[in-house]
Write a protein that binds this DNA or RNA. Structure first.
Lengths: 330, 330
DNA sequence: GTGAAAGCGCTAACAT
DNA sequence: ATGTTAGCGCTTTCAC
């Protein structure tokens, strides 16, 4: 059922039908009513493809994340979804997992989206080059400005968060007993957090920590457990800054088996403040990253860019903040 | 840059360009090469709207969930995303939150999607009627078959899961000390789980539990805490089946403050087996719902339906299974 | 093997 | 206030 059918049913031209939908003031009330009746009677819905072909717009935004699973991305998506709704857009979501098909961005329907929010967590020069080629409005999440020159970005001030956490730990534990247990070595977030950790220690103790005090692994519970196993001997009276909350809980878990309690026998701060951190006992001191805001900011920036492609490039920086709970006090 | 530009650059007609893209065998190798060179040189990408207008297909699937936040939906989405990728589709995701604008489905871009996976967790006759009107292929998640007559559905056998959990609890705790702490009273999952709980008790004890032993609230940590507060006096030596893992942890949390330990002083089983359940101490005995499979099945069913609109309606039923961890043994 | 031309369903001038 | 018409960019007969 097309606009043609409606026009015939209402005894008007297709232009008139189009008008009552897009510019009702141009149509006499009587005709408008006739047309609307016909529309309802036939259950007519404008063909989105035909509309898109003309307007060159779908009001759909693409969101590409490394993974769409877990509290972290889930929360980010929530913010993006909410903001998109406000702005009258929908979200085409997909993960970059398994898209090692080399070629293009993993969105089959890339052509449909009015803009693209892309999270980049590790160096990927090829991808960035591709982005600059592509005409689609784009905002990059997470990649530090270095990478995103000329592209709108949303970044979290991980350095500030890690610094705050480290300084907090230093109040409880001497500098030479502080460790950083990060995620992947190449991950932007982990890199920045590690660097800020090292700087904060250096500022306090006059010298950076041993290399052995800064470890890298994956953003997983298992890695946290393993690290705790490997450092069982020195965990007592230590201070630990974890790369994220999952790692932190891995440490808690293993430490308990060793008879050590976070917040009493050693101090522990996580990162992200995912739901986990406030549900689990002991409740985790952690650096709250405003994930929903990140998602919302990305969408908001993207919509701005779509509306004005010529606007100056902007970088939104969101600041995390330390939440003190049970693992840094007894 | 359109197909026209490519055609001119390659010195052929637009039909030929279209052919090398869609039916290369019809084109001589030499011409094909010329065309491909032009395509690369110009960075041509076919206009998805124009393609959609003809093919009446976008290879995009709409996924509408009550909420896209949290472990539960996140895991479901992961399965859907993965299956969609396999099948060559993308996912347009949105939550039904805040879409009380009454009117249509909350997807602005409903017209773009080739199919719709819709999760319905509470009775909503209006919505179901709307679905039957709409021609878009649809699969409904979660709503029991009653609701989805004539529509493909994916449902979890909550009754089986709740029965297994209840029978497990009955091994540790007498029937008259068993409670069910559910989610919202109207929620399909909670309703089914409560009913199966009651049946299992009746089968074992010869009589259904008191009404007071079956409580409804929300799927939240806070509700679990509150319930535990309200039942502090009778929690010792009790058995609790929670409506989901969050509720279960709410109970654990409050119980600990009361000096009661799950798995020792009372028995506790959660529902869903979200990540939480295996990370947190004490690790939760819980009914594992194959959420990723639910998402994947929905997509798979949807694609089948798109390919053959006349196929008989099918209902996929997935079976959860009890995972015994620390909260039902000491 | 390739080109010309007819639409797909819609919007937006341009006429009337 | 309403109708006519020219595309939007593409695929697909139908000719040659």
């Amino acid at each position: 059922v097309s606009i043609q059918d409606v026009a015939e049913a209402a005894g008007v031209s297709i232009a008139t039908v189009s008008r009552v939908l897009n510019n009702p003031t141009l149509v006499s009330p009587r005709t408008a009513t006739k047309v609307r009746d016909a529309i309802n009677a036939l259950g007519y819905v404008p063909n989105a493809f035909a509309q898109g072909l003309i307007s060159k717009s779908s009001r759909v935004l693409g969101v590409v994340l490394p993974d769409i699973h877990g509290e972290f991305y889930s929360e980010l998506l929530r913010g993006a979804d909410s903001e998109a709704r406000h702005q009258g857009y929908s979200l085409l979501v997909c993960s970059r997992l398994r898209s090692a098909d080399g070629s293009l961005l993993p969105i089959a329907a890339l052509g449909f989206v009015d803009g693209l929010a892309l999270m980049i967590t590790e160096p990927d020069e090829g991808l960035l080059r591709l982005l600059r080629t592509h005409a689609t409005p784009t905002v990059v999440l997470d990649a530090e400005a270095e990478a995103g020159a000329g592209i709108d970005t949303v970044i979290v001030d991980n350095a500030a968060g890690a610094r705050e956490a480290t300084e907090h730990l230093l109040k409880h534990v001497p500098a030479d007993r502080l460790c950083f247990v990060g995620g992947p070595r190449d991950n932007f977030d982990t890199k920045t957090r590690a660097a800020a950790f090292i700087d904060a220690i250096a500022a306090s103790a006059g010298a950076p920590p041993d290399d052995a005090r800064v470890a890298f692994g994956t953003y997983s519970f298992e890695w946290g457990r393993q690290w705790a196993s490997d450092h069982a001997a020195s965990l007592d009276r230590a201070g630990v800054l974890a790369g994220n909350d999952e790692i932190a809980y891995g440490v808690v878990h293993r430490a308990e088996e060793l008879g050590l309690k976070a917040g009493r026998d050693f101090m522990l701060v996580g990162f992200d403040d995912t739901r986990l951190a406030s549900l689990v006992r002991p409740m985790l001191s952690t650096v709250r990253v405003p994930l929903a805001d990140v998602g919302a900011a990305a969408v908001s920036l993207l919509v701005k860019r779509i509306k004005d492609r010529g606007a100056p490039v902007s970088h939104v920086r969101l600041t995390p903040r330390l939440i003190v709970r049970e693992t840094t006090r007894d």
